[in-house]
């Protein structure tokens, strides 16, 4: 912990950063995000295995961008998000310094995104076993039962859009769900509209979702929405061999094609 704090203090001192996004202790077990603007506040900065939030979502916020030079303490999911977002040219207007703490509790300060890319590729996260188990279970059900399961889940959705707010890949200034000419998605929290919303969200994240699972974790009514994107990521890798948040260069899965892509359903 001291090591991390010293490193960040150093960065503040030599003017590399003037805002640090990291974690601080909370009343509950899981640490919460914190914003450090001066060196005197550094003592609250911590990093543990329970630091799960994907902090890269804050880098889209204008009030954060204002700081100009931003340090970000990243877990592996956040690093992956940073790689994906860089490949989508999202960080042209800020200078960021990326820090992480590896398994041996060493603090790494990356000098550029190429280093982050190499680190991500060396430590590429697998799908969580819990998610795979749930998916296997769902896939073992009949179609009607799956439909029943998901429509029951979606009927609980209150359309708070927390899944969108927490997602680092959902940065469009205007989302299709807010478009009212035409009204693609019903605004009231009815099951049909909820279903359409979740399908649309998953489709717009196809090939871009970096599988941090924040959407499922944040859902106030406990819908496992992240399973849709987990399944999608699995399929994209199986069908096209693409991985999101893996490389700084290159197209994302739905932005590119191969003439010999295989499918078995087009007549």
């Amino acid at each position: 912990m001291k090591l991390l704090q010293n490193k960040v203090a150093e960065l503040f001192e030599n003017g590399t950063i003037n805002l640090m996004i990291g974690f601080k202790e909370a009343l509950t077990k899981q640490p919460v995000p914190c914003f450090i603007e001066k060196a005197s506040e550094i003592e609250q900065l911590i990093y543990t295995k329970d630091c799960k939030n994907n902090l890269s979502v804050y880098l889209h916020k204008p009030e954060v961008k204002q700081a100009g030079k931003i340090g970000i303490l990243a877990n592996i999911a956040t690093l992956r998000a940073l790689v994906q977002l860089t490949s989508e040219n999202q960080f042209w207007d800020i200078e960021k310094t990326v820090l992480t703490v590896n398994d041996k509790e060493e603090v790494i300060v990356f000098s550029d995104m190429e280093e982050v890319e190499a680190y991500v590729q060396a430590n590429f996260p697998e799908f969580s076993e819990e998610d795979l188990k749930l998916l296997d279970y769902l896939e073992s059900l009949s179609r009607e039962d799956r439909w029943k399961y998901w429509t029951e889940q979606f009927s609980a959705c209150i359309k708070c859009y927390a899944c969108r707010a927490v997602c680092p890949m959902c940065y469009c200034p205007q989302c299709t769900v807010e478009c009212n000419q035409p009204q693609w998605i019903k605004t009231s929290a009815q099951t049909t509209g909820n279903l359409e919303w979740h399908i649309m969200r998953a489709m717009h994240l196809a090939g871009r979702c970096i599988n941090c699972g924040e959407c499922g974790r944040i859902c106030p009514v406990g819908i496992p929405v992240h399973l849709l994107t987990v399944k999608m990521n699995q399929d994209l890798f199986k069908e096209f061999g693409t991985k999101s948040g893996f490389a700084l260069k290159g197209d994302y899965a739905l932005n590119s094609f191969k003439p010999d892509d295989k499918e078995g359903f087009i007549k």
């Binding site: 998916l135 896939e139 279903l195 399944k231």
Partner: peptide, 8 residues
């Protein structure tokens, strides 16, 4: 199709 399939 794969998403629709998962949803049922």
């Amino acid at each position: 199709r794969s998403i629709l399939d998962l949803i049922g």
